[in-house]
């Protein structure tokens, strides 16, 4: 799920960046630092959308670096247990398949793939129903349900299932 929230961060800036562009420098450094990172609490920071407030700088003893407290708005993404997500399949193997939704890595094991879908090996491994009407392979788009999540400092891992009503392939690259 996406959230638009306000976060805070203390930014350290080298004195050479001081001058009339101080604010721009701070903001671009903030974007470089936080966009694409993860936190267990908020999930993945997708983009900084605005600055709420930049506090007074504080010179750090001995170094000359200055610390600015910044409040900023950003869009974060965090998956939840029970959430339905749409994801791209990145790898298919005999254990199941891996999919990606943005920064989120999702694994769907073959226990959680409907029993009528069978693994087919070859140079394009896939899971196919016995009548061949549905096929999951690399680059397929699937709708899945999250049944477990773990958010690390840099990565988000999820376990997903497609063994439920209205889940499974939503877009097949071969027919598109």
């Amino acid at each position: 799920m996406f959230f638009h929230i306000v976060l805070e961060r203390n930014m350290q800036l080298h004195p050479r960046y001081f001058g009339r562009n101080l604010r721009d420098n701070l903001v671009s450094k903030l974007m470089k630092d936080v966009e694409g990172t993860c936190s267990g609490r908020h999930g993945f920071v997708v983009a900084v959308t605005g600055i709420e407030h930049i506090g007074k700088g504080l010179i750090r003893d001995g170094t000359g670096f200055v610390t600015f407290p910044i409040k900023y708005q950003c869009v974060v993404f965090r998956p939840f247990k029970g959430e339905i997500l749409e994801a791209f399949v990145t790898m298919v193997n005999k254990m199941g398949f891996f999919a990606e939704a943005g920064p989120v890595q999702i694994f769907v094991s073959n226990h959680l793939i409907p029993d009528d879908m069978e693994f087919q090996s070859g140079d394009m491994p896939n899971y196919t129903t016995s009548d061949g009407s549905v096929k999951i392979q690399k680059d397929s788009e699937v709708r899945l349900k999250i049944i477990g999540t773990r958010v690390d400092a840099t990565e988000i891992f999820c376990i997903g299932t497609i063994k439920d009503d209205f889940l499974g392939v939503i877009n097949d690259p071969t027919t598109a």
């Binding site: 247990k81 890595q105 694994f107 094991s109 959680l112 477990g148 773990r150 990565e155 891992f157 376990i159």
Partner: peptide, 12 residues
Amino acid sequence: PGSFGNMCIRCG
């Protein structure tokens, strides 16, 4: 039966 990122691949 196994784990992915320390979560069970079957029950999460």
